[in-house]
Amino acid sequence: MLTQLINIIFNLESYLSPFLEHLGQSVYLILFILIFLETASLVFVFIPGQSFIFLASTLAASSTSGLNIWRLLLDFLLAAFFGNIVKYYIGQHFYRHRAIQSNAQSRFGRAQRLLNNHGEQIVIFGRFIPILGNLIPTIAGATKMNPLHYLFYTAIGVLVWVDVIAALGFFLGRLPIVHHNLTWFLLGFFIISALPSLIKTGWDHWKRPATEHN
Rank of each mutant, 00 (worst) to 15 (best):
A104L: 10
T183N: 12
A56R: 00
Y28E: 08
H213F: 14
S14Q: 08
K207S: 10
P196K: 11
H97N: 07
L16D: 01
G119L: 07
F125E: 01
N117S: 13
N103C: 03
L5S: 09
H180P: 02
I47S: 02
E21F: 01
S106T: 09
H118A: 01
L172Q: 11
K144V: 04
L37Y: 05
P130H: 01
E38N: 13
L20R: 08
T183G: 02
E38D: 15
Y28M: 04
N84M: 11
I6L: 15
L186D: 04
Y150A: 02
G173I: 12
P196T: 07
H118E: 06
P147F: 12
A167L: 12
F10W: 14
A60G: 09
H149M: 15
G188T: 13
I191P: 04
F82G: 00
A140S: 15
T64S: 13
G49P: 11
T39K: 05
K87V: 04
L20V: 05
K144Y: 11
A56F: 14
L2D: 10
G83T: 03
L67H: 07
F82P: 00
Q92R: 11
R71Y: 14
L159Y: 03
W203M: 09
L148G: 02
F10K: 08
F81Y: 15
I177T: 10
Q112N: 06
H213S: 15
H213L: 13
N103H: 15
L31Y: 05
R208C: 03
T138S: 14
G157A: 03
G49D: 07
G173C: 05
I177M: 10
I85S: 00
L175V: 15
A111N: 02
K87Y: 00
G202P: 08
L42P: 06
F189Y: 12
L132F: 06
A61C: 08
N11A: 13
A140Q: 09
G119C: 09
E13S: 11
H180I: 02
T64V: 10
P130R: 03
S65L: 08
W206L: 12
Y88K: 07
N146M: 08
F152M: 10
E38H: 10
N103L: 11
Y153K: 08
R110W: 00
T138I: 04
F36S: 05
A140C: 15
L132H: 08
